[in-house]
Amino acid sequence: ELSWTAEAEKMLGKVPFFVRKKVRKNTDNYAREIGEPVVTADVFRKAKEHLG
Rank of each mutant, 00 (worst) to 15 (best):
E1A: 12
E1V: 11
L2K: 05
L2E: 03
L2T: 07
L2C: 05
L2W: 04
L2P: 08
S3R: 11
S3W: 11
S3E: 14
S3Y: 13
S3V: 15
W4Q: 00
W4L: 01
W4P: 00
W4A: 00
W4F: 00
W4S: 00
T5A: 04
T5H: 04
T5V: 03
T5F: 01
A6R: 08
A6K: 12
A6N: 09
A6S: 09
A6Q: 10
A6V: 12
A6D: 13
A6L: 11
A6H: 09
E7Q: 07
E7A: 09
E7F: 04
E7G: 06
E7T: 06
E7V: 05
E7L: 06
A8C: 02
A8E: 00
A8I: 00
A8Y: 01
A8T: 02
A8L: 00
A8N: 00
A8D: 00
E9F: 08
E9P: 00
E9S: 07
E9G: 04
E9I: 14
E9W: 12
K10W: 11
K10N: 09
K10P: 00
K10D: 11
K10L: 13
K10S: 11
K10R: 13
M11T: 03
M11P: 00
M11A: 07
M11I: 06
M11D: 04
M11L: 15
M11F: 05
M11G: 03
M11S: 04
M11V: 04
L12K: 01
L12C: 02
L12S: 01
L12F: 04
L12P: 00
L12W: 03
L12T: 00
L12D: 00
G13I: 09
G13L: 15
G13P: 05
G13W: 09
G13A: 15
G13K: 15
K14I: 06
K14Y: 08
K14W: 07
V15K: 03
V15A: 05
V15F: 12
V15Q: 05
V15L: 15
V15R: 03
P16K: 05
P16G: 04
P16I: 04
P16C: 08
P16F: 05
P16A: 05
P16M: 04
P16V: 03
F17P: 11
F17V: 11
F17K: 11
F17E: 13
F17M: 13
F18G: 12
F18M: 09
F18A: 14
F18Y: 14
F18H: 14
F18N: 13
F18Q: 11
F18K: 12
V19Q: 14
V19W: 15
V19R: 11
V19D: 14
R20W: 03
R20H: 03
R20A: 04
R20D: 02
R20E: 03
R20K: 05
K21M: 13
K21I: 13
K21T: 12
K21W: 14
K21G: 14
K21F: 09
K22M: 13
K22F: 13
K22P: 04
K22L: 14
K22S: 12
K22E: 13
K22Q: 14
V23W: 10
V23L: 09
V23T: 07
V23R: 04
V23Q: 04
V23I: 10
V23A: 06
R24H: 04
R24Y: 03
R24V: 03
R24D: 00
R24K: 11
K25P: 01
K25Q: 14
K25G: 07
K25M: 14
K25F: 12
K25Y: 13
K25S: 10
K25I: 14
K25N: 11
N26R: 13
N26V: 13
N26W: 15
N26Y: 15
T27N: 02
T27C: 09
T27R: 02
T27H: 02
T27D: 00
D28S: 07
D28L: 05
D28E: 15
D28N: 10
D28I: 07
D28W: 02
D28M: 08
D28H: 04
N29W: 11
N29A: 14
N29P: 00
N29V: 08
Y30R: 02
Y30E: 01
Y30V: 03
Y30G: 00
Y30D: 00
Y30W: 07
Y30T: 02
A31S: 06
A31W: 01
A31H: 00
A31V: 03
A31T: 03
A31N: 00
R32I: 08
R32W: 06
R32N: 06
R32K: 11
R32L: 08
R32T: 06
R32Y: 06
R32S: 05
R32H: 06
E33D: 11
E33Y: 11
E33G: 09
E33W: 11
I34R: 09
I34D: 03
I34C: 09
I34E: 06
G35V: 03
G35A: 05
G35Q: 05
G35L: 05
G35H: 06
G35I: 02
G35D: 06
G35K: 06
G35N: 08
E36W: 07
E36Y: 09
E36C: 08
E36T: 07
E36S: 11
P37V: 10
P37S: 13
P37A: 12
P37T: 14
P37Q: 11
P37F: 12
P37H: 10
P37E: 11
P37M: 13
V38L: 10
V38E: 07
V38G: 03
V38W: 06
V38A: 06
V38C: 08
V38P: 00
V38I: 12
V39W: 00
V39Q: 00
V39I: 09
V39A: 01
V39C: 01
V39M: 02
T40V: 01
T40F: 01
T40L: 01
T40Q: 01
T40E: 01
A41G: 09
A41R: 06
A41F: 04
A41K: 07
A41Q: 06
A41Y: 05
A41N: 04
D42H: 07
D42C: 07
D42M: 06
D42K: 07
D42E: 13
D42N: 06
D42R: 06
D42F: 04
D42W: 06
D42T: 07
V43D: 01
V43L: 08
V43I: 12
V43T: 06
V43Y: 02
F44K: 02
F44T: 02
F44P: 01
F44D: 01
F44W: 05
F44V: 05
F44E: 01
F44S: 02
F44R: 02
R45I: 12
R45P: 02
R45E: 10
R45H: 08
R45Y: 07
R45G: 05
K46R: 11
K46M: 09
K46C: 08
K46A: 12
K46L: 07
K46F: 05
K46Q: 12
K46G: 07
K46I: 05
A47T: 04
A47I: 05
A47Y: 14
A47C: 06
K48Q: 15
K48H: 12
K48A: 15
K48G: 09
K48D: 06
K48P: 04
E49P: 05
E49W: 10
E49I: 12
E49L: 12
E49M: 12
E49K: 14
H50S: 09
H50W: 11
H50F: 11
H50D: 06
H50L: 10
H50C: 08
L51T: 08
L51R: 14
L51H: 12
L51G: 09
L51C: 12
G52T: 12
G52K: 14
G52E: 12
G52C: 15
